[in-house]
């Protein structure tokens, strides 16, 4: 997993990024624009909804900004 999407000017084409619950709207919009420019996808998770391994696997998440 990459640590920071916003520091990476060119995420891979077709990648899927998961934005953690609590991510600000500005970052969500910026990430959406960045990903959609490269035919990627974003996964948004509502606060209170757990981010589980099955969610990550099921959505084929390839980028998770801020994760260790």
């Amino acid at each position: 997993m990459e640590d920071s999407l916003l520091e990476d000017p060119a995420p891979a084409s077709g990648a899927t990024v998961l934005l953690e619950p609590g991510t600000g709207l500005l970052e969500v919009l910026a990430t959406a624009c960045s990903m959609w420019e490269r035919e990627g996808a974003i996964v948004l998770v509502e606060e209170g909804v757990p981010v589980t391994d099955s969610l990550l696997t099921g959505e084929r998440v390839t980028i998770r900004p801020g994760s260790a």
Binding site: L6, E7, G24, L25, L26, L29, A30, C33, S34, E37
Partner: peptide
């Protein structure tokens, strides 16, 4: 007070 990432693509 919104989080302030670096300028990003998308006309932002």
């Amino acid at each position: 007070g919104a989080p302030a990432p670096a300028p990003a693509p998308g006309g932002i």
